[in-house]
Amino acid sequence: MKYPIVLKKIIGVENYKTYVPDLPGCEGNGVSIDVSLNNINDSIAAHLSILAEYGEAIPHATTIENHLAAYPNVIWCIIDIDITPYLGKSHKINVTLPELLIKQIDNRVSKSSAYKTRSGFIASACISELNK
């Protein structure tokens, strides 16, 4: 999931503050833009772990446009987070699909490093559809 990130330079000091508007309370900072973005990545992972631990739903990412009014004069970044580890324990299910569709899925999985397995591809497609 691609979360928009607010990056703001703190005036008067060598420090950057980061916020994830779609994950209230998820913040980070760092002495440079790179350090700050690395730190917010860790903060997001910790935040999602806590939500998963308490059985809370993972908030959907929205667009930067949804937050422009609340965060003027900042730098916007996007961080792509694989949320599947935070969705709970995996369960095996039986799914019936047309043969041609299975071949197309397998072809895409074999050509893309984004999907490691057929199940991973199907899970990503489901998450994408549910986020609409």
Rank of each mutant, 00 (worst) to 15 (best):
I5N: 05
P59T: 11
I78Q: 11
N107H: 07
S113N: 15
E129D: 10
K103Y: 06
S36Y: 00
E56M: 12
N94Y: 03
I105S: 12
K116L: 13
I40C: 00
M1N: 03
I127E: 07
P85N: 13
I50P: 01
A70K: 14
K116I: 08
P4V: 01
Y115L: 09
Q104D: 09
I81M: 04
N41L: 03
S49Y: 08
N66C: 14
P98G: 06
K9C: 01
T96Y: 03
T62Y: 07
C26E: 03
A61H: 15
I75E: 12
S36T: 07
H91F: 05
S128Y: 07
N94E: 04
I40Y: 00
V6E: 01
G12H: 05
T63A: 14
A52V: 05
V35P: 02
C126R: 01
A114T: 13
G55N: 15
D80A: 11
L37Q: 10
N73W: 06
T117H: 12
K89S: 13
R108S: 13
Y54G: 10
A45T: 15
K111M: 15
G88V: 06
K9V: 02
V20Y: 02
D106T: 11
D34T: 07
I93C: 06
I79Q: 10
N39P: 05
E56G: 05
T84H: 06
I81Y: 01
A123I: 13
S36I: 00
Y115M: 09
N73K: 10
V20P: 02
V20L: 04
N131P: 10
C77P: 00
P98V: 02
A114L: 14
E56W: 04
K111C: 14
H47A: 02
K17L: 12
K116P: 08
Y3S: 10
I11K: 10
I40E: 00
L23D: 05
S110V: 09
A69K: 13
T96D: 01
T62K: 11
D80S: 11
S119R: 06
K89I: 14
I122F: 03
S113Q: 14
C26Y: 02
L130I: 09
I102E: 01
P59D: 10
H91G: 03
D42T: 11
I81K: 00
L7R: 09
E53R: 08
I105N: 11
C126Y: 07
L97M: 15
K2T: 10
S128R: 09
I58A: 01
N131T: 15
Y71C: 10
I105G: 09
I11F: 05
L51T: 08
I127D: 06
G88F: 02
Y3Q: 11
